[in-house]
Design a binder for these strands. Structure first.
Lengths: 104, 104
DNA sequence: CATCTATTTGGCTATTTTGCCAAATAGATG
DNA sequence: CATCTATTTGGCAAAATAGCCAAATAGATG
C-alpha cells in the first residue's frame, strides 16, 4: 500500500474532531440525549464561546447535527456507530486489545 | 453524566495519536504487516526523524509495539481492534452513519 | 577499532489548536 | 422597539504539534 495523502487527511480530520477531552465528552453525552449549548457549557465549565467552537468542530466533521428551536440550539449525535469504537479505546487503556475480536 | 476531565483526557490521548494522516497510514500499513522505520520512511517521503517521532506517538499511546532486530526496529500494530473503527469513519465520510449498526 | 547503516533525541521554526474576551447576531418578551 | 437570553464570530495570547537539521546512540562489518 502506498501513502495517499489526501485520502488519509480526510479520515484524520474526522478522528481529530474526536481527539479532545471536551469533544469526547460531548459525543458521549449527546449519544445519551440531545442537549443545548448552554447545558453543555454548564457541564464542562468553560466559556460558552469555547463550547460553541468545539461543537462546530464536531458538526464540521459530520459527527453531530444541530437544530435551532427558539433561541436555543440543540445538538445531537449524528453517528451512533462511533460509540462502538470507545470500547476499543478502553481495551487499549487496559492493555487488552491484542485481539481483533475484543469488546469493541 | 458529568464531565470527568481526567477520564476523558486519557481517552482523548489515544484518539489523538490516531488523528494525523501519516499516523493513520502507519496504523493501516502495520495492520497488514510489520515494517521497519526505514520502510515506513520511504513510503511517506518524510524525514526519518519525523517518522520516528510519529511512531513514538503511536507507541506511547499503546497502539503499536516495536521490536529491535539487528540495527533495525520493526513496528507492528498492537491493537487490531481499532481497525473496526475505520469502517465507521468511512460511513461518516459517506453520510451513511445514522444507524448504530452500520458497517463498523 | 574505524566506519557504515538505522534509529532516536535535542533543538529550532512554522503552523495549528485552545480558550478567553468582546462584539455581532437572532429569537423572545415586555 | 428596547431589552434580555442564547449562540456564534473575530481576534488575541498561550500552548501544543509537525517537520527539518544536526548530533547522539546502537548494532553490523571491514
Amino acid at each position: 500500500m502506498s501513502y495517499n495523502k489526501q485520502h488519509f487527511t480526510e479520515r484524520a480530520h474526522i478522528i481529530k474532531a474526536m481527539s479532545h477531552p471536551v469533544r469526547l465528552f460531548f459525543i458521549e453525552e449527546l449519544a445519551r440525549q440531545e442537549r443545548c449549548v448552554c447545558e453543555l457549557t454548564e457541564m464542562v465549565g468553560l466559556d460558552i464561546s469555547t463550547v460553541s467552537k468545539h461543537l462546530s468542530v464536531l458538526k464540521n466533521a459530520g459527527l453531530v447535527v444541530d437544530d435551532k428551536r427558539g433561541n436555543q440550539v440543540f445538538y445531537r449525535l449524528q453517528t451512533p456507530c462511533i460509540l462502538n469504537f470507545f470500547g476499543c479505546v478502553e481495551a487499549v487503556l487496559n492493555g487488552e486489545s491484542e485481539t481483533t475480536n475484543c469488546a469493541c
